[in-house]
């Protein structure tokens, strides 16, 4: 019969404060809340759009103002955080093999950043911002 094993006590709800790495992990995970919230806003926009001009324009008026701008700025920070952390792990998710070796990860990351910038500029141009 073995002795009672030592079980290191770990808080189930506050473990991620124990190490900065855990906190960085959780900061990536919570970006989903902001992506989800923004998608529901987008769904709301589509719904109001389907109801006609007056409904849609009252929606646009409702999302105007400093508090909306503050909320959307926070959402923007988190979706950019998702983008950067997502692209930075692409060499692990999409390794490119060349013969015996692998393409250095920085090229895969750089390609994703380049595509990100191109798509963003294309959308801004299409939307009439640029």
């Amino acid at each position: 019969m073995s002795r009672r094993p030592f079980v290191r006590p770990v808080s189930r709800t506050r473990w991620y404060f124990k190490h900065p790495r855990y906190l960085r992990y959780m900061s990536r995970e919570v970006t989903c809340v902001f992506i989800g919230a923004f998608t529901l806003l987008l769904l709301c926009a589509v719904e109001r759009l389907s109801e006609g001009q007056a409904a849609y324009e009252s929606f646009l008026a409702a999302i105007g103002g400093p508090w909306s701008a503050l909320g959307l700025s926070i959402v923007l920070i988190f979706v950019v955080h998702n983008a950067i952390s997502w692209f930075n792990v692409t060499p692990k998710a999409l390794p490119v093999q060349i013969g015996e070796g692998f393409l250095p990860g920085r090229f895969i990351v750089a390609a994703h950043y380049a595509v990100w910038i191109l798509i963003s500029l294309a959308v801004l141009f299409f939307a009439g911002v640029l």
Partner: peptide
């Protein structure tokens, strides 16, 4: 989301401003 969400949020942020 990584490729499109930032620019889409930016469009709505501009509208809010």
């Amino acid at each position: 989301a990584a490729l499109l969400a930032p620019v889409l949020v930016l469009l709505f942020l501009l509208a809010a401003l």
